[in-house]
Design a protein around this nucleic acid. Structure first.
Length: 497
RNA sequence: GGUCGCGUGGCCGAGUGGCUAGGCAGAGGUCUGCAAAACCUUGUACGGCGGUUCGAAUCCGCCCGCGACCUCCA
């Protein structure tokens, strides 16, 4: 019996605004598409939260026994500014680089950050610029189906006609087409559209535009929403299981994506839509465009006015997972400090778990304790299978940490706990912490500093043995002044920066 | 203005009809040469006013406050 049969997964499907049992099209295969970053500058922490959320879903799906194809795109074309200039092109102009250099540069930096945050790479990470033919084909298919029209080399999606035929425009975002553009904003190229709700799927490039490709309609570039439609269809098929992204993409991006897919392929793209909520700072959404942001580097270095110190990437990941992905989360220095302590507590317990040997324990233990551990094991699965409730799962892991500490301190005696229970406890704790939630022990620094510290700590240890408190305290205090804290414990003395 | 969501103890944050969320901080304790760290124990809560119910933080209504989206956004 597969784990996913034993612990059926329930997902809050934003398409229907309710929690539904997850039934993949072709179990054990699962196709998941997540909207990735636009690589015209560095990702900010809000982006990271989204990708960490989907990383945990990806990990848990795999842990349940599904074979997941996880697609996360890189947007490197077609995203326009209010001025009409492409975001990539604008950045290229500012940095005096080629647009593709910009894309490469920020893609590489994005990968670096994602790796620090311990997210697994997706199965395929397609770039929009590498899928122009597929996008042109899709424009053609929509035209062939009579749901788009060409004006002066640009092609627009006929939203009104689409809605008349399918009646579904606005289903995802809960919008009514007639009311949608009652208050019109002045936007570029509005004059070419038949209806304000129409949107470009192919745009003719203006003279100065650098990123452009040949198409049956003009030398131009695809509309922003089109890449996800084309690439999800190419790699996951016309209909697939899960489509995810930040809540701010619901409208218009995802709504238009659905319209394009249905318009081209006559079927809805994804059965389950998952939207992650926004990371806030000072109670306001973190957003690239209005400057209310903090980058992962700034947070890790502590080089930002909003934080008093740098935070380890794993602390940040833990901080994210303490809240449910569908809730807003307010970033603050205070909350991060709390997260740092809590995370450390789990890591201490992890160390204990890894040192326990089931063979040291008897075949029979205290039945009550065995039941407790069985219950904690079950709850880890039930909570994660309940719409990926990482907050609740962490709460169970903290309970398990308590048991591990009790074993370690002798509060729970060896004879009280069975070998099987120990196995289940350590295995569940380790697997959920590391494999499912992706939380790992902070890498110890392995520089010469370790050697130097070893020497200093030995000197201090000798002084202590000789009751030379003046010297031992001098070592401790002066190290503290240099920002190095030392911790005495039964196993010896360790240090941290 | 329209649509959607939120308001939980000092702070962060789960929970959705009766059963302890959890973390941090605070308090008490264990350990320790002292300290720190670590560990154990522990109090405090559901924005306001009504309603439904045997029973509501949880459902309904109104009010107050906050946020998101409404063609830049994860």
């Amino acid at each position: 019996m597969k784990k996913y049969e034993k612990y059926p997964l329930y997902i809050n499907n934003s398409l229907h605004r309710k929690k539904e049992k997850f039934e993949p099209l072709k179990a054990p295969h699962v196709g998941m598409y997540v909207c990735g970053p636009t690589v015209y500058n560095d990702v900010h922490l809000g982006n990271c939260r989204t990708f960490v959320s989907f990383d945990v879903m990806y990990r848990y799906l795999m842990h349940l026994g599904y074979q997941v194809r996880y697609i996360r795109n890189i947007t490197d074309v077609g995203h326009l500014m209010d001025t009409g200039e492409d975001k990539m092109a604008e950045r290229a102009r500012l940095e005096q680089l080629e647009p593709m250099e910009i894309a490469q540069k920020y893609t590489r930096r994005f990968h670096h950050i994602m790796s620090l945050m311990n997210t697994l790479p997706p199965s395929i990470e397609p770039a929009a610029s590498g899928h122009i033919p597929e996008q042109i084909q899709m424009v053609q298919a929509i035209l062939d189906n009579g749901l788009a029209y060409e004006v002066n080399g640009s092609v627009y999606f006929d939203t009104k006609k689409y809605n008349e035929e399918s009646g579904n425009y606005g289903q995802l975002s809960g919008r009514v087409l007639e009311e949608l553009f009652s208050e019109t904003r002045t936007l570029k190229n509005q004059d070419e559209k038949r209806d304000p709700a129409d949107f470009a799927i192919w745009m003719k490039a203006t003279d100065g535009h650098i990123m452009k490709w040949r198409s049956p309609w003009s030398k131009g570039f695809p509309g922003w929403h089109l890449e996800c439609s084309a690439m999800s269809t190419k790699y996951l098929g016309k209909t697939f299981d899960i489509h995810g992204g930040g809540a701010d993409l619901k409208f218009p991006h995802h709504e238009n994506e659905i319209a394009q897919n249905v318009g081209a392929c006559k079927v809805a793209p994804a059965n389950y839509w998952i939207h992650t909520n926004m990371l806030l700072m000072n109670g306001k959404k973190m957003s690239k465009s209005d400057g209310n942001t903090i980058t992962p580097e700034e947070l890790m270095d502590g080089n930002n006015e909003h934080v008093s110190q740098g935070y380890d990437p794993m602390t940040i990941r833990f901080f994210f997972l303490q809240a449910h992905y569908s809730s807003t989360l307010d970033l603050s220095d205070h909350a991060l400090q709390a997260a740092s302590k809590g995370y450390q507590r789990l890591m201490n317990a992890l160390k204990i778990a890894k040192n326990l040997r089931p063979e040291d324990y008897p075949a029979q233990g205290d039945a009550e304790l065995d039941d407790k551990i069985q219950d904690q094991h079950d709850r880890c699965y039930l909570e994660m299978s309940n719409d990926f409730n990482t907050a609740k799962t962490l709460a169970v892991l903290f309970e398990m940490a308590g048991v591990l500490n009790d074993i370690d301190s002798g509060q729970i005696k060896t004879k009280q706990i069975s070998s099987e229970a120990i196995k289940m406890l350590t295995n569940t704790f380790t697997v959920f912490l590391e494999d499912v939630l992706g939380l790992e022990k902070v890498q110890e620094s392995s520089s010469k500093l370790d050697d130097v510290m070893q020497i200093l700590l030995e000197i201090r240890q000798t002084a202590r043995a000789e009751k030379n408190w003046a010297l031992s305290d001098q070592v401790r205090d002066q190290l503290a002044e240099a920002g190095i804290k030392i911790k005495d414990s039964k196993e010896g003395t360790s240090y941290s920066l």
